[in-house]
């Protein structure tokens, strides 16, 4: 495999790993349930996207033919992540999960 491809793939995997790790740190560090919702819907999405690009690049270079099926993983993740975040937020508002005192504004009462 060419050296350039190896650097590219390694870089993509590192970026993906870093963002997934940051997403996990966010899950532990952010102050309340609603804030924690933000970490998995974004940081992790980019993490998975970068790892997916690395996979596409690796199999395309090593087997000499274009591999694109991995892109579907990211597409489906983009479709499902907002829906699950939305349902989690709705459920949390429904049972009245505590919010940090710094929060401005109020969700309406259901």
């Amino acid at each position: 495999m060419q050296a350039f491809a190896e650097y590219l793939i390694a870089g993509l995997l590192l970026i993906g790993g870093a963002f997934t790790l940051i997403g996990a740190i966010g899950l532990a560090r952010l102050p309340d349930f609603f804030a924690r919702l933000h970490a998995p819907t974004k940081a992790t999405t980019l993490g998975v996207g970068a790892i997916m690009l690395g996979s596409v690049a690796y199999f395309t270079v090593s087997e000499g033919q274009v591999h694109v099926a991995e892109i579907l993983i990211t597409v489906f993740l983009f479709l499902t992540a907002p829906v699950s975040a939305n349902i989690l937020a709705k459920a949390a508002m429904h049972i009245g999960v505590a919010r940090t005192p710094e929060t401005h504004g109020n969700p309406w009462d259901q």
């Binding site: 963002f19 940051i22 997403g23 740190i25 966010g26 560090r29 952010l30 102050p31 309340d32 609603f34 804030a35 933000h38 970490a39 974004k42 940081a43 999405t45 980019l46 993490g47 996207g49 983009f78 919010r99 940090t100 710094e102 929060t103 401005h104 504004g105 109020n106 969700p107 309406w108």
Partner: peptide, 25 residues
């Protein structure tokens, strides 16, 4: 925007200052 968003959320997660969450209608 997803790329930009991920970077800004990552920075917020790693920075020591507290976020100011809000509900917006």
């Amino acid at each position: 925007d997803i790329v930009v968003a991920s970077i800004s959320v990552a920075r917020l997660v790693l920075s020591p200052r507290k976020p100011r969450p809000a509900f917006i209608s």
